[in-house]
Design a protein around this nucleic acid. Structure first.
Lengths: 186, 186
DNA sequence: GTCTATAAAGCGATAGAC
DNA sequence: GTCTATCGCTTTATAGAC
């Protein structure tokens, strides 16, 4: 249900996703939709964004934070991201909202999604011996590369752009060696 | 004129930019707007995208291709990009359209913008001795980092994210040394 | 060229029958 | 819980006066 809703918002954006389209995609009439979402379209989008955020927390962020082997945790993150975004064919709804005009409506959720991602990845990188600052910047870089890869892959309509970017990003995180003086145990 | 139009599309997206908003931003009534753009909103957006593309060609891509000193050309590119995007406060309209539902309408222009960017940067990198393939991947990476930085900076509402990403990207391009066996003169 | 008036369609949202 | 009918408003676009 929220999943079908998400695909409509993904495909048409917040403004573009009319109740007619939503009704068609979910197979529910407007009456039923307003029964489930008394808050209307804004509530629908908010719950969709919330469910995406929750999915990332349980499927990506938490495993990444809890991973006993940070390298394996990071590898799982990239694998999960590749699957979720269907190797670049699927767009990041949170990113779309961040760029769009509906950003103000959902600013908190959008920010939380990205902050949690950077935090989780930065923690794994600290376990590899990076200083808090370096870990944070490396994590920020990786997240931003994924978002940029989604934009570029969709713009030039070539999902190999996405795969390549994901591989480069993963490889760089694995190869970047922490400075000796910054190495620490956690 | 096209500039004022561009800001409206940037701020509200293609769907969100109603003729009422456009009329207000340009100071022209609907009648006048349809006098200049008989094709309506779609023509307005197409011409705005075209003008942005043209700006990047003359201000960024061409200087980058023609630069006698590739390192200086690349530095100018990053400086120009930082200025254009107002250090991350301004969003990339082409990127927004690429992610949005209006993408199909303007797919050609969107693709051309990014292809031309990657091509121009790849040419400069080849002049530094990189192989065509490596140069292309490095260029693709830099362009995608800029787009991702715009998304992330806007999402977390912190333009320092953009500045940092631009600096890292520039620095990496300057530090990545071409393989000896791939070095060539152009 | 610029305006106002208006058409025709689509929008989000509501009411009320079932 | 799901539907249809409908409200009130906004949308893009056009017509025609000036």
């Amino acid at each position: 249900m929220l999943s079908a809703l998400g695909e409509v918002f993904r495909a048409h954006g917040y403004e573009g996703a009319s109740l007619a389209l939503i009704s068609e995609a979910t197979g529910l009439g407007k009456g039923s939709l307003y029964h489930f979402f008394p808050g209307g379209k804004e509530q629908m989008a908010a719950e969709v964004l919330g469910s995406i955020d929750a999915w990332f927390v349980t499927e990506i962020y938490r495993p990444l934070r809890k991973a006993s082997d940070p390298r394996g945790g990071i590898a799982d993150m990239f694998a999960g991201v590749d699957t979720y975004f269907r190797s670049g064919r699927r767009v990041c709804l949170i990113g779309v909202v961040a760029l769009g005009n509906a950003r103000d409506l959902f600013a908190d959720r959008v920010k939380e999604y990205f902050v949690a991602w950077v935090d989780a990845l930065a923690l794994a990188l600290r376990k590899l011996g990076h200083s808090p600052t370096v870990a944070r910047h490396l994590a920020e870089q990786a997240v931003l590369e994924i978002q940029g890869a989604l934009v570029l892959a969709r713009a030039v309509n070539d999902r190999k752009v996405f795969s390549r970017a994901l591989m480069r990003s993963h490889r760089r995180l694995m190869l970047t060696r922490p400075e000796r003086s910054q190495r620490r145990s956690i």
